[in-house]
Amino acid sequence: MTEFSLWDIVRNLLLATRWTVLLSLVSFIGGGLVATLLLFMRIGRRRVFQFIAKYYVELFQGTPLLMQLFLAFFGLGLFGVDVPAWLAAGFALILWSAAFLAEIWRGCVQSVAKGQWEASASLGMGYVQQMRYVVIPQALKIAVPPTVGFSVQIVKGTALTSIIGFVELSKAGTIVTNATFQPFTVYGLVALIYFALCWPLSKCSQILERKLNVAHRSH
């Protein structure tokens, strides 16, 4: 029987961490793009789009991410499309994070004081100009800390993709455990690596919150 050194374990886990990081980045960036689209549908003035965006968000917030992964992975298979695990994982995580980011950002846009809308309107600005020059710049500032905060959720969310067989950090943990029979060591290391990814993001969110001084600059 082969003996595994601690370094063997760590090395394999770190290799798999690349996929966790990549999947997180793809989900965050892709989710951000979809969320931007959803946001403008939601805060725009076309009723149909508002409706679609609203129910999209409710649907994705109201179902477990795991079910969304299953549906993406097995659902498309029903139509004869063979979906590889990485594609289903990326696809589901993008749609999932889009829903949450859109909702976070909508809150930020709506938290811009009503007086800002009125003042810009009274100066003759149209809806698009108000958004572009007055509301969005203020909302962006408010949005930075919760958006960075949510990226932590995305990193942790990628762990679920191990269930549909995508080999990222958690799945690698399971594989290594099966080979080494050292579950406590391995999962302990897995947890440590997640922590090393997430903690700086949380800290970053806190620092940004203080720096942008959201509570005091809002008036």
Binding site: E118, S122, Q138
Partner: peptide
């Protein structure tokens, strides 16, 4: 033009 009680300057 209009001036408001709460000034409503653009804070950014």
């Amino acid at each position: 033009g209009m001036i408001f009680q709460q000034f409503n300057l653009f804070p950014h």
